[in-house]
């Protein structure tokens, strides 16, 4: 893979800037509104990265990734609200529970491959959504979801003045996810994942248990998604069925494809862009100048899915590799010119 040799100092500088910015109340990032938007965007960026591990690095097209994320959200919320364990233990249990669920579902659905695998994971994910919506034993609160009881989590996460702590938590979660995925994909297991994606038969011929490695990738990805579920619970303040919808997984797929798979930073950027764009588009269409556009054009444009869907189709058809792919292509060209 082509690497950007200036990336590390620049990345470090960007991270320091992002971490310090909320301290200065005169900057846009000093305002709670933008902090909240970015905190959610960071979580989506991290979640897109866990999906990239499956889809980009291992070549597994799962449509049920929302299941593990939602498990993280709901399990931690239920444990905290019922005062069963303290918040940090709840976060750990929720993360482990997501991993265990991923192992079980993965073991069944990895018996199929390719497109069938996509359908099967979709069905399991949807079952999760249905269970959450049905409110069994009064645990999940049905369609309304459950609000996080603010008394049982540290007070620095509660209230608008403290939004910057949520922002920092989300940023930290993104960095942790990035480091874990970086470590996994650069490890020898990560090489096997890539090999599975490129040529499964060849891996089999080498005598490796392909199912085991696929399951490993599936479980790592699901576990991380569960951890991010806890962080989302802190950021959103409630557990809602929308976190379990199949549209979450589809959004993740869009993020990874728009940002570009297999580059890590592409998925993160795609996730942040997607989340940020969906939130900001809604604000934009509420403005007065927007009212002058005729209803039959303005109506559809007000739905963020239109623009994102069109960008997505364009990238799949004409620009495979997304944003990061385009960047690397440009750099390749520049390099070729320099050496010719």
């Amino acid at each position: 893979m082509l690497r950007w040799k200036y990336s590390r100092p620049l990345l470090a500088a960007l991270l320091v800037a992002l971490a310090l910015a909320p301290m200065f109340t005169s900057l846009p990032l000093g305002k709670p509104g933008l902090q909240q938007t970015l905190a959610v965007a960071f979580i989506w960026g991290a979640l897109a990265l866990t999906y990239d591990l499956l889809f980009g690095f291992t070549g597994l097209l799962s449509f049920g990734h929302a299941l593990y994320f939602a498990t993280g959200v709901y399990v931690s919320c239920i444990l905290i609200n019922h005062e069963i364990v303290s918040w940090w233990l709840a976060a750990i249990i929720a993360t482990v529970a997501s991993g265990v669920l991923a192992a079980l579902v993965g073991a069944a659905s990895l018996r199929t491959t390719g497109i069938t695998f996509a359908m099967v994971t979709l069905a399991f994910g949807e079952a999760g959504h249905v269970i959450v919506g049905r409110n069994f034993f009064n645990l999940t609160g049905g369609e309304n979801g459950i609000a996080l009881n603010a008394d049982f989590v540290p007070q620095f996460w509660i209230g608008v003045v403290n939004t910057k702590y949520i922002y920092w938590t989300a940023l930290l979660a993104l960095i942790i996810t990035y480091l874990v995925i970086w470590w996994v994909t650069e490890s020898s297991a990560g090489r096997v994942f890539a090999a599975l994606r490129d040529n499964e038969q060849r891996v089999q011929v080498l005598g490796l248990d392909t199912q085991k490695f696929k399951l490993l990738s599936f479980v790592i990805s699901g576990t991380l998604a569960g951890m991010l579920g806890f962080v989302m619970l802190i950021a959103a303040g409630s557990a809602a069925p929308r976190f379990a919808e199949s549209s979450v997984t589809i959004a993740l797929l869009l993020m990874v494809v728009i940002g570009g798979a297999v580059t890590r930073w592409g998925a993160v950027l795609g996730g942040i862009f997607y989340s940020f764009a969906s939130t900001r588009m809604q604000d934009l269409t509420q403005q007065e100048s927007f009212k002058s556009i005729p209803e039959w054009i303005g109506g559809p444009i007000a739905e963020p899915a239109l623009l994102l869907g069109l960008i997505f189709i364009f990238i799949v058809m004409f620009a495979p590799g997304g944003l990061s792919g385009a960047y690397y292509r440009l750099r390749m060209k520049a390099l070729a010119r320099k050496h010719s």
């Binding site: 589809i250 494809v257 559809p300 739905e303 899915a305 239109l306 994102l308 997505f312 189709i313």
Partner: peptide, 16 residues
């Protein structure tokens, strides 16, 4: 993937 995009666009247009 392209069909996912189509379903999003159609949903957005009809919803709008």
């Amino acid at each position: 993937l392209v069909t996912v995009g189509v379903s999003l666009v159609v949903g957005a247009v009809l919803g709008g």
